[in-house]
């Protein structure tokens, strides 16, 4: 059976290239997309979120902060604004970032500064994604912090 070839790059570096991948799930801007071999050519923007890569029964995940995804001829190319493998995410730092973003969002909402609020929201989303990926690695599933902050988004 055909397999997928996945390449994830950011402006700074090539984060990952992998052959013989069975499935990729990515946070498309119009909804989560799952890509199997022989997928139709697709070009989509990505929201901040988690990319899951399944290969031979093993699943790995990666936090991306938005970007673009291109599928053509069983080649998937992801141009990410930021991308971190699950073993690269520093959960403590991500949590600190989450708290900062939350405070900034609250400030901005109170004073009615829309652009700042939007920036803070994006930052918050990114930190949540990183936390999610870190927790996936350590085997825990969605922690309470996530559902409580999800409401403010």
């Amino acid at each position: 059976m055909a397999k997928l070839r996945v390449q994830i790059v950011t402006a700074e570096r090539e984060v990952l290239t992998e052959d013989d991948v069975d499935m990729v799930v990515a946070p498309g801007s119009e909804g989560v997309v799952g890509i199997l071999p022989r997928h139709a050519p697709l070009l989509t923007t990505l929201n901040p979120g988690v990319i899951r890569i399944k290969k031979g029964g093993v699943e790995s995940s990666m936090a991306v902060g938005g970007g673009f995804l291109q599928v053509a001829n069983d080649r998937i190319r992801i141009l990410a604004d930021t991308a971190e493998r699950e073993d690269e995410v520093d959960e403590a730092r991500a949590d600190a970032a989450r708290q900062r973003a939350q405070a900034a969002l609250q400030d901005a909402l109170k004073s009615g500064q829309h652009t700042q609020a939007e920036a803070a929201r994006t930052a918050l989303r990114r930190s949540l994604v990183r936390i999610q990926v870190a927790q996936r690695r350590s085997g825990r599933r969605s922690a309470p912090t996530q559902s409580s902050t999800a409401n403010t988004l």
């Binding site: 498309g28 801007s29 119009e30 997309v33 050519p41 697709l42 070009l43 989509t44 923007t45 053509a72």
Partner: peptide
């Protein structure tokens, strides 16, 4: 190739 564009080009 005929691409699918999401949301659109």
């Amino acid at each position: 190739l005929e691409y699918i564009y999401e949301p659109n080009p």
